[in-house]
């Protein structure tokens, strides 16, 4: 037994399972410190600064007044809040209308091209959001491809597609619809397709089958997708900036202005806090409602 491992003197090592757990604990420590430093604390600072003021030179200072929040209770801001909410909801609704047929067609009739088709949707969505928004701007602009095509066909002269609510909402859908397609697709994939056959036999109407069988069975994917589309759509400012104008601005544009152009950071922080508060309330209500629905199934 020449190749035997040397034996350490017994009793010097600690019990290794505790040593092992400690090793994993160390691994957790650094990322935890990182997230607390750069994420949690940053959120705290936003909340703190929302009660602050700016000096005469425009420098933000911490404080304890709620002036920023009462300033938000203003018709201009409120209208903008409501508009953002409506745009985001419209985005969710359109995304649902697009996602179901697309996910359905791919999941149940995609055959061996399923994965390729899903990849064809996913790849552009994860590649530059900004460039895709720009692509729409180029297409819809007054001297863009669409207008010149219409002109050539004699169908009109210089329609303004940009600066309309529909351009902005279209941009949001274009930006985020993938977050609806993927979960709906995943739950359709998991679904037992014999249910759809049974439904077709029973109801003789694809539409009735869809509402009585397919929709309830994919509820989880639908609810998840709605949330995943709503959250980024509500906070977006790029679509409104590039495809819209001041009449279509959303909360995101307002916040962006306070931080980049207006340089009123405390007011911008208050807007951010207000948006997050609204989102949190909506989310809690939404999760409550959907989880009871899910339980009824």
């Amino acid at each position: 037994m020449a190749a035997e491992a040397p034996h350490a003197p017994p009793g010097v090592q600690r019990r290794r399972s505790s040593q092992h757990t400690r090793m994993w604990g160390y691994l957790l420590a650094l990322p935890t410190v990182w997230m607390v430093t750069f994420f949690i604390s940053s959120m705290v600072i936003v909340v703190l600064l929302s009660f602050g003021t700016t000096t005469r030179d425009g420098f933000p200072v911490f404080g304890t007044n709620s002036g920023n929040f009462s300033a938000l209770w203003d018709e201009v801001y409120l209208r903008l809040f409501v508009r953002s909410l409506l745009y985001a909801l419209a985005t969710v609704a359109l995304s649902v209308l697009i996602a179901y047929p697309v996910a359905y067609a791919i999941a149940l009739h995609g055959g061996r091209y399923k994965n390729a088709l899903i990849a064809a949707i996913v790849v552009p969505f994860f590649a530059s959001y900004l460039i895709r928004m720009y692509a729409w701007k180029a297409l819809l602009s007054d001297d863009g491809l669409l207008n010149s095509g219409l002109r050539k066909a004699g169908l009109g002269d210089g329609i303004s597609f940009l600066n309309t609510p529909w351009a902005v909402i279209g941009g949001l859908v274009y930006g985020f619809v993938v977050f609806m397609i993927l979960p709906v697709y995943a739950s359709l994939e998991r679904m037992d397709t014999s249910l759809i056959e049974a439904g077709n036999d029973l109801y003789h109407s694809p539409l009735r089958t869809f509402f009585t069988v397919t929709l309830p069975a994919t509820r989880a994917g639908l609810y998840g997708g709605m949330l995943l589309v709503f959250l980024p759509a509500l906070g977006d400012f790029v679509s409104a900036q590039l495809l819209g104008g001041s009449s279509t601005f959303m909360i995101g544009n307002l916040i962006q202005q306070q931080f980049v152009e207006g340089q009123n950071w405390p007011l911008g922080s208050a807007m951010t806090v207000a948006m997050m508060a609204a989102l949190t309330v909506l989310m809690v209500v939404y999760l409550r409602a959907t989880s009871t629905k899910a339980r009824e199934l």
């Binding site: 350490a8 017994p10 009793g11 290794r16 399972s17 040593q19």
Partner: peptide, 22 residues
Amino acid sequence: SDPTAGQVLVGGEDVTSTPPHR
């Protein structure tokens, strides 16, 4: 797995608190 009590001897040597790799 650590014993709650007792000893493990391998080749007459007490390895109860020796890690697996040794």
